[in-house]
Amino acid sequence: MDIAAHNTVFIPGATSGIGLALALALHKEGNTVVIGGRRADRLAAIEAEHPGIGTVVVDTTDPAGIEAAAQEVRTRYPQLNVVIAMAGIMRIEDWRRPEAFLASAEAVITTNVLGPIRLIAAFVEHLQKQPDATLVTVSSGLAFTPFAATPSYNASKAAVHMLSESLRIQLADTSVSVVEIVPPAVRTALLPDQDTSEHAMPLDEYVAEVMELLRSDPTAKEIQVERVKFLRHAEARGDYDEIVAAINAADSHGT
C-alpha cells in the first residue's frame, strides 16, 4: 500500500517534532491528515496555520481519552485507513538507584508501549473494514543498539519492534499491513539539546527521506533512512560491540 498519498491518516502525538513534520508532508502529498495531542490551544494553532489539517484532543497515556478520541476520529473520518502511532517520550535515567529511575521508567513504558497498544486496540477493527489499510508503528535505532543513558526508552522501542513483527504475522490475512518507522537521532526536543545536536539528523532531511522511501517502496516493512542503518544492522554486520561502545562514548543520542 502506498501510504504517501491518497489516504486518510491519523497521527496522535503530532503537535511537534517528527509527528508534526510527517503530518505536514503527508498533507502536502494530498492525504487527509488528522493529528492528535493533549493541548487544545496547540492543536488550534496548527489547524489555523495549516488549513485542511484536522485535529483531535487525545492523551495517549489515558485509556478513556484514547477511546473517546478514536470514536471521534472514526465518526468524523469514516474513510480512515492509516494510523501512525507516533507518541513517545525519552528520559535520561540512572538505574543504580531506584529513586532515580522508577517513576521515569513507568512513564516511558506507559507512553511508549501501552500508548501504541491502546491506540491499536482502538482502531484495529476499523482498519480491517477498509479495503486497504496500514498500521504504522515508530520504534528507534536504539531498539537494536542501546544508548546506556536511556534504558527504558531502549526497551520500549525494542518492544514496539517485536510488537510490529508479531502483528504483521497476525494481520497477514487481513487488509491491514504493518509498517515500522525506525528513526535515528533526529533534531527534535525529545531530549534536552537534541534539537541542536550535531549528532542528530536535521528534521526536514529526515522527513524528506522517509517520504521518498514511502513513495519508492509501498511494500516496505521497515522505513530505515541511511543514518539509522549503522544501529539497526550492527548485530547482523558483526560490529555490535564496537557500535555500542562508539555511541556511548560520544555525547550523542539516538531516537
Rank of each mutant, 00 (worst) to 15 (best):
M1A: 14
D2K: 05
H6S: 12
V9S: 03
G17D: 10
L24T: 06
T32G: 02
T32P: 05
V33P: 05
V34I: 15
G37W: 11
E47K: 14
E47I: 02
A48H: 08
P51D: 10
G52D: 09
G54D: 11
V56C: 05
D59Y: 03
A70W: 01
A70N: 03
Q71E: 15
V73Y: 03
N81W: 06
G88F: 06
I92L: 03
R96A: 08
R96P: 00
S104M: 04
S104H: 13
V108I: 06
T111N: 11
L114R: 08
L114S: 12
I117K: 09
R118T: 01
T137N: 14
L142R: 15
P146H: 11
P146R: 11
F147L: 12
Y153M: 08
A155W: 10
K157N: 08
K157V: 01
R168K: 11
A172S: 12
D173I: 01
D173L: 04
T174I: 06
S175W: 09
V182M: 03
A185I: 00
A189P: 01
Q194S: 15
E205I: 10
V207Q: 04
E209W: 04
E212I: 00
L213F: 02
L213K: 13
D217H: 07
L231I: 02
R232F: 08
A236F: 00
G238L: 01
I243P: 00
H253R: 14
H253L: 11
G254A: 14
